[in-house]
Design a protein around this nucleic acid. Structure first.
Length: 554
RNA sequence: UGGGCUGUAGCCAAGCGGUAAGGCACCAGACUUUGACUCUGGCAUUCGUUGGUUCGAACCCAGCCAGCCCAACCA
């Protein structure tokens, strides 16, 4: 079980439910996650999933997955499949079942007819432009449609014809008769049904009229016995319409809508529309690019469901607009992986070391802990020879103040092995250190020096003859602007794209044990970060997160 | 400019009339064969603001200010 419901802190929605339970307004709690299959799920979706799932779990109720598929031109089967995959990966099993909003099209249609009969809905012939004019503005009420007072009989006939395909797209709509002077734009005779000649991914060509979200959603909730219909805050203005539909279609079970603030993260775009654009313009490698905030992207990057939920849980649920720090997500991940990830050694940018006082034909093995804090995770043996690789960044000819690693004439601990001293440097034609000639203090094999001298640095190493080649991919934020969610209206968020969001290192060396690395298995490359084997390309390892470092070179 | 919602530290966020939880970040130290982890200490005399009510206000009232959402036949 990935979700630890016991640990879930209460929030304002829990308070509402407690009260409803106490006052007998609800008996069994029933929630739902209603994604539109028009894109891949992202970490913001995970927040909605988490809220709904944990509520059902906490109150012993049920949790539905329901595809909100009322607009055939935007929705695709591919997304339906991915949504279920992601939900299963998260471990948020829909205990109440999996449903499709489109399965209620017949009921929606019947309810629409009931509204017409009750004189609460009418067929309107206004064009889109006209309707917009008639709607009025934020500060002025609208005008009533000239078609508002058609007879029930005429409306019924017209609606029937709409359904039968007698009209072209846009020729007419079915509208609720509410209040054109309402200060809430949503109540100014909202459209209930529109004509769309498009095949539906489940209904095929059965329909050419499709219900709008505002009409379909409360019906779906009522059908499924949802008690608390939770959505994000931009739907707050829609609640009066939600209630209007519930009150006027005549259902005994009356679900209620509550709103919470959606998840925003620093340096991250969350809108599906923009994520799709990133995919379509090839800024990223697909929906599952590890830089994407999509669940499949996070998965490919090495994130775990538990870390994602930990982050969401600890971030809290409120109605306040907020932007969570991606660093906090990373912190939740690292806290978990520090416990679970086995340690391995890899050298990202190799620098050759020849140990001049170690026999060239000798090989010995050092047992290295798989996790020093978790001895139960065991050890593995690493071969040691006179030719090693160390990290280029672990050697400096002209060390900055505070540099604790290897310098010419200095000593450093080879992790789990000897103390190494650098005696001579060979340079390449560009003047960079290419090879170090070193000696090893054979007395310090896993021991402190007998003379008590202090060697402060510890570096990782690999025997040059015993490595695997790999490519490391290091992912940084896609955007270099902290608050990208605020400029969603500009179409040109491209100018904030960080050109260095992907760093590729070829020629990386890893210890032999990585031959058996599995996709999804988190490992820590010691002193560097957490990595996973890429699920798409062989020999590629993705950095999930770097290790923190208090070293600040001047 | 109409309506709705929101304002507690750099970032999240508890708090629900009795005197500002917690986490992240940050700073200072300890420990360290991962500059990781861990540990210790520091970090809001004040809750957007101004008044009012009260023995007592972040909590109640009024005004003001700021931010977000709404004028798709999208969700």
């Amino acid at each position: 079980m990935v979700l630890k419901v016991e640990d879930v802190a209460s929030n304002f929605i829990h308070d509402i439910i407690d009260k409803d339970l106490q006052e007998g307004l609800a008996e069994e709690i029933h929630t739902r996650f209603p994604p539109e299959p028009n894109g891949y799920l992202h970490i913001g979706s995970a927040k909605a999933i988490w809220i709904n799932y944990t509520i059902a779990k906490k109150y012993g109720g049920k949790f539905n997955l329901r595809y909100d598929d009322t607009n055939p031109v935007k929705e695709e089967e591919e997304y339906v499949i991915s949504i279920e995959e992601d939900l299963m990966w998260l471990g948020a099993i829909p205990s109440g079942g999996i449903f499709y909003g489109s399965d209620y099209f017949d009921q929606c249609y019947e309810y629409a007819k009931k509204l017409i009969i009750d004189g609460k809905a009418y067929v309107c012939d206004l064009s889109q432009e006209q309707m917009s004019e008639y709607r009025g503005t934020l500060t002025e009420g609208g005008k009533e449609s000239p078609y508002r007072n058609r007879s029930v009989r005429e409306n019924l006939e017209l609606f029937e014809k709409m359904k039968a395909g007698a009209f072209a797209e846009g020729e007419c709509t079915l509208r609720a008769k509410i209040d054109m002077s309402s200060s809430n734009m949503n109540m100014r005779d909202p459209v209930l049904y529109r004509i769309i000649y498009a095949s539906h991914h489940r209904q095929g060509d059965k329909w050419c009229i499709y219900p709008m979200y505002d009409f379909a959603h409360p019906i779906q909730d009522a059908q499924e016995g949802i008690t608390h219909s939770l959505c994000s805050i931009e739907f707050e203005n829609h609640r009066p319409l939600y209630d209007w539909v519930i009150d006027n279609i005549g259902v005994s079970h009356k679900p209620h809508q509550y709103e919470f603030a959606r998840l925003n993260m620093t340096y991250t775009v969350m809108s599906k529309r923009y994520l799709r654009k990133l995919v379509e313009t090839n800024v990223v490698d697909g929906w599952d690019d590890p830089r994407m905030p999509t669940l499949c992207g996070l998965r490919r990057k090495g994130y775990t469901p538990s870390a994602i939920f930990e982050f969401i849980s600890k971030s809290g649920v409120s109605k306040t607009f907020s932007i969570a720090d991606v660093k906090f997500l990373e912190h939740c991940l690292c806290t978990e992986l520090n416990e679970t990830a086995q340690r391995r050694i890899a050298v990202t940018q190799p620098l050759s070391v020849i140990i001049t006082n170690y026999p060239s034909n000798e090989i010995e093995y050092f047992d290295i802990s798989n996790n020093p804090q978790k001895p139960e995770q065991g050890k593995r043996s690493l071969p040691f020879t006179n030719e090693l690789y160390i990290e280029q960044s672990d050697f400096l000819v002209e060390p900055a103040p505070g540099f604790k690693r290897l310098v010419l004439g200095g000593e450093v601990r080879l992790m789990g092995a000897y103390i190494l001293k650098c005696n001579e440097v060979e340079y390449d034609e560009k003047g960079n250190a290419a090879k170090l000639l070193c000696t090893v203090d054979l007395e310090t094999k896993n021991n402190k020096p007998a003379d008590g001298r202090k060697v402060r640095g510890t570096i990782h190493w690999l025997s040059a003859g015993h490595t695997l080649d790999a490519q490391f991919r290091i992912y940084n934020q896609l955007f270099n602007k902290e608050n990208v969610s605020s400029l969603l209206e500009d179409d040109n968020f491209e100018e904030f794209l960080d050109p260095d969001s992907l760093e590729v290192y070829d020629n990386c060396k890893m210890e032999l044990a990585l031959e058996h690395a599995k996709t999804g298995e988190n490992i820590q490359f010691v002193r560097q970060g957490y990595y996973v084997k890429d699920s798409k390309h062989d020999g590629v390892f993705n950095r999930t997160a770097p290790l923190k470092s208090s070293y600040r070179p001047k």
